[in-house]
């Protein structure tokens, strides 16, 4: 026997040093996690605290008064909903169907790979570039003028590549063996997509689309260049205040305006506007997560 049974299981210096490394690693990772979360909570807490005097349902439903120094944000709130809804109504179908084509039909050749690369790079183009494109393409070339249509289409162009990329990812996560099983009983590609691929990737696809809501709602530059205005007179609580060829207000733009362009705004109003924008995004994201969990639970493989 080459080891003394009495000390066989006792701690050696090497074990102690491993424990020290283990503890250090754990604290570093925990510290980084805290460094990420704490500022977020501080920002949120600060915003809500400063916004508190103005926060109420009335704030959302009211129109701004006295040169936007007081009152609510209804025109901007509705405007944002218009822009987000129309832009996604355009980009989601195009993006999803294009991704289905690229992932399920197109051959995996160099062209397809270049398209894929282009899509990924387009998803990273700064929004100001999309803004300039929208200005040139929709406002001037297509003669839509500064309007909801131009702004929505610009947002659609901006969200399109991300939707294509996330949809492709969702489609690619459906195991190949399912597709092979279908082909081997003689299913066409469309039958395979309908019966197996889409039902199993729909949660990922929808999540990808819904996450673009927050992006479309938050961006300022693309709509500022193409269709958002500082102010538009609107009836309080009016659900359809805008025509498509008109300009509209939007939350992100409104926030920019009242924080930097209008002197003497009641102090809590910009903060309350920010909280509403943030709340809108959080609600939509929460909905996305709920939907995802619900769809996940229905599919098990």
């Amino acid at each position: 026997m080459n080891r003394d049974p009495k000390t066989m299981f006792t701690e050696t210096p090497l074990v102690r040093s491993k424990f020290r490394q283990e503890a250090a690693a754990k604290w570093i990772f925990a510290g980084m996690a805290a460094a990420m979360i704490v500022p977020l909570l501080l920002i949120l807490g600060y915003l809500v605290e400063r916004a508190w005097p103005s926060l109420s349902l009335g704030f959302i439903l009211d129109v701004p008064i006295r040169g936007m120094k007081e009152g609510g944000i209804w025109p901007a709130f509705v405007g944002t909903i218009y822009l987000v809804f129309i832009s996604l109504a355009v980009s989601a179908p195009i993006g999803i169907l294009a991704a289905v084509y690229l992932n399920e039909y197109a051959k995996d050749n160099w062209l397809n790979r270049i398209i894929n690369l282009a899509v990924i790079n387009l998803a990273g183009v700064p929004s100001i570039v999309h803004a300039l494109f929208g200005l040139g393409a929709f406002v001037y070339a297509a003669k839509f003028g500064y309007s909801i249509i131009s702004a929505s289409l610009t947002l659609a162009i901006m969200t399109l590549p991300v939707i294509v990329a996330s949809t492709r990812e969702a489609l690619a996560s459906v195991p190949r063996s399912f597709r092979e099983a279908c082909w081997n009983v003689g299913a066409t590609r469309w039958q395979t997509i309908q019966a197996i691929v889409l039902p199993n990737s729909i949660s990922g696809i929808l999540t990808g689309v819904i996450l673009q809501v927050s992006r479309a709602a938050g961006e300022t530059a693309p709509i500022m260049f193409t269709g958002a205005v500082f102010f538009k007179a609107v009836q309080k609580g009016d659900l359809f205040p805008y025509q498509l060829h008109e300009q509209c207000m939007a939350l992100s733009m409104h926030l920019y305006t009242i924080s930097t362009q209008v002197p003497g705004v009641k102090e809590s109003i910009p903060f309350a506007t920010a909280v509403v924008l943030l709340g809108l995004v959080l609600v939509v994201n929460a909905a996305a997560i709920t939907l995802r969990v619900w769809l996940r639970n229905r599919k098990k493989w």
Binding site: S177, E180, A181, V185, G186, A195, I196, N200, W301
Partner: peptide, 26 residues
């Protein structure tokens, strides 16, 4: 052709639908 020539794979690959639907899928 694929309808008359069935294939069974190394890893069982039932489709992620019910037993009944699997059998009537074809």
């Amino acid at each position: 052709l694929r309808k008359s020539v069935g294939m069974v794979f190394q890893r069982p690959n039932p489709l992620p639908i019910s037993v009944y639907e699997n059998v009537v899928f074809g």
